[in-house]
Every structure is written in C-alpha cells, then in structure tokens.
Design a protein around this nucleic acid. Structure first.
Lengths: 145, 145
DNA sequence: GAATGATTCGTCCTAAAGTATGAATGCTTT
DNA sequence: AAAGCATTCATACTTTAGGACGAATCATTC
C-alpha cells in the first residue's frame, strides 16, 4: 500500500516536470485548454481506477474447511483432560443442539439453576466465555459430535 | 452504469466550463501550473477510484483451507435458497466462530444495532430461535464450514 | 468419620441476546 | 420516477445468559 502511494506521488511529480519542459519547449499552453484538461483528467481517472483496485480490499472470504468422512468417535481422553463431569457433558451436548437453558432443564428434569451451574462449570473447564464458544471448543476437541 | 458514465461526462464538461470562466475572470493561468495540475489530478483520481469501484466487479477472495478427506464446499445453492444476504452470511460465520454481537460489530466495523438487525434476519431466514440453533442449521445446510 | 466431588437448587445482580419498530441511504431494477 | 432490497443505525423493551455467592444431599474415598 505504501509502495502504491509512493509510485503515485512520483508519477505525479514526473508528469509535472514533463509538462514544465514541454511548456518551455513547445509552448504547450497554446493547445486548447479543453484538450489539456481532458488529457490530465483521463490520465488520472485511469490512475484512480488502478489505485482503487489496488487499495480496495477483497470483500468475501469463503473459508473451505475439511469434513471428516470417518465415523465420529467421542474422544474419551479429551473429555478426561477437560475434567468435564457426566452431567456437564450432557448439558454441553444439548447446548450444541441449540436448546436454551430452560429447554435443557425440562429435558433432563432439573431446574434452570442447575443447568446454569453446569454451564458455569463447562465454561470454566473449556475456557469459554459464551456457549457458542464452548460448543466450538468442544467440537474441536471432539468431545461432542 | 449508463448513469454513472453520464454523470462522469457531465462533471468533466462542467469543470471545463468552470475553468474557462475562471480563466477569463481571474486569470487562472497565473496560478502555478503545479497547483493547477495537482488539483485536477487529485479530483480525477478520486473520481477514478469512485468510478472504478462502481464499474469493476467486486473482488472475491476465496481462501481454501485444507481438504483432508471429503472436500467441503460451501453450498451456494443452499445459501440462495435461504435468501441470506452477503452481510448476514458474514455475521453468521462470526457467530459460529463464537463471537458476541459486540465483537462481531467491532470486527466488521458496524454498530451492535446493525449486528442485531442482521441476526434477526438470520433467525428469520433459518427459522431459528437462538444463535446456537442458527449455527446448527447453517452447518446442516453446509452454508458455513 | 471427615474430606471430596458430583449433583442439585436458590437468590441477587449484571451483561448479553433477542424483539419490535421506525427510519435513512444507496443501489438495482422495472 | 418508483418500487424493492441491502445496509445501516437508533430506541425501547423483554428475555435469556452468565457471574457470584451460598447451601443441601449423596456417594465415594481417604
């Protein structure tokens, strides 16, 4: 980017010098002012388009990720290393399934308080701030499917 | 596109006329030629960048990240069928990456309000009640990696 | 028996997420 | 010109999530 600006500045300086020379040698100003402006305008419009295409950053980043065709096996080792309890793992799976705390509570027949307690434990053990982050980490560790 | 070219042409004509007038009234040419060229150059560079951004098709950067077994390809058809916009897709990906609305807002340089608007659109189009559910559905549809 | 950890539940509080509504801008298409 | 869509932002409100306590029960372990 810096190089682009540099080249741009140098080109401008060079053009000015060129015109200065032409002005003295061939009385450039005798040319119609419309032509004069037109040439400069065209020149810098092109330069502008070029500079713009250089400076404008690409818009879409399509990330292609690999998908395992191999059957998913819950990594028991990973579960142990995190220290997640059975119940926490259960809650985590339901979280990843898109359920709210209330829905999870209803499914496993406990109160929302309990689900929250488990959630807090999950976030602590997976070092996550939010459930979405916890789900992501759990999938990376192959703790959940 | 035609309008763009038309506006561009008219602007150029207007500028030439303006300079003509100035030339007669205030002896514009007495000004240093460097300044003169500089102004026109700057003006048309800006115009060029603007015109370029309009006329040149947006850059699309596709980053391919590894394909171990089954190559994952974002299902363009599925994206279209959901009717998700470019921005919504972007927000969705960041959601799936575990970011909060505030963090997403900071990353794509918009306000939290805007992120929430996109989120609402996502939930509607993916028929989801929560972000975790939206992420799940998006993965099922292979809209995100 | 005491300590430990898992599970359960509660309250209080703050932060984040989500809903609803309105509105401005700019681009595209008809 | 007009209608539609995408993008942006705001305000106000409700709901959900999360943090920070404490505390009870039960089984296992030391």
């Amino acid at each position: 980017m810096k190089k682009t600006i540099l080249i741009y500045g140098l080109s401008l300086a060079a053009l000015i010098m060129l015109l200065k020379v032409l002005q003295y040698k061939y009385m450039l100003m005798d040319l119609s002012i419309e032509v004069y402006i037109g040439v400069i305008a065209a020149l810098f419009t092109i330069t502008g388009v070029w500079a713009g295409s250089k400076l404008i950053s690409p818009k879409i980043k399509t990330v292609v990720v690999e998908t395992l065709s191999t059957p998913f096996i819950i990594n028991e080792e990973a579960v142990k290393s995190t220290g997640l309890s059975q119940r926490e793992l259960e809650v985590l799976q339901l979280m990843a399934a898109g359920f709210s705390n209330q829905e999870i509570a209803d499914k496993i027949f406990v109160s929302v308080s309990t689900v929250k307690s488990h959630a807090a434990g999950i976030f602590l053990k997976l070092d996550a701030k939010r459930r979405t982050q916890a789900i992501l980490k759990a999938k990376e560790l192959k703790i959940i499917g």
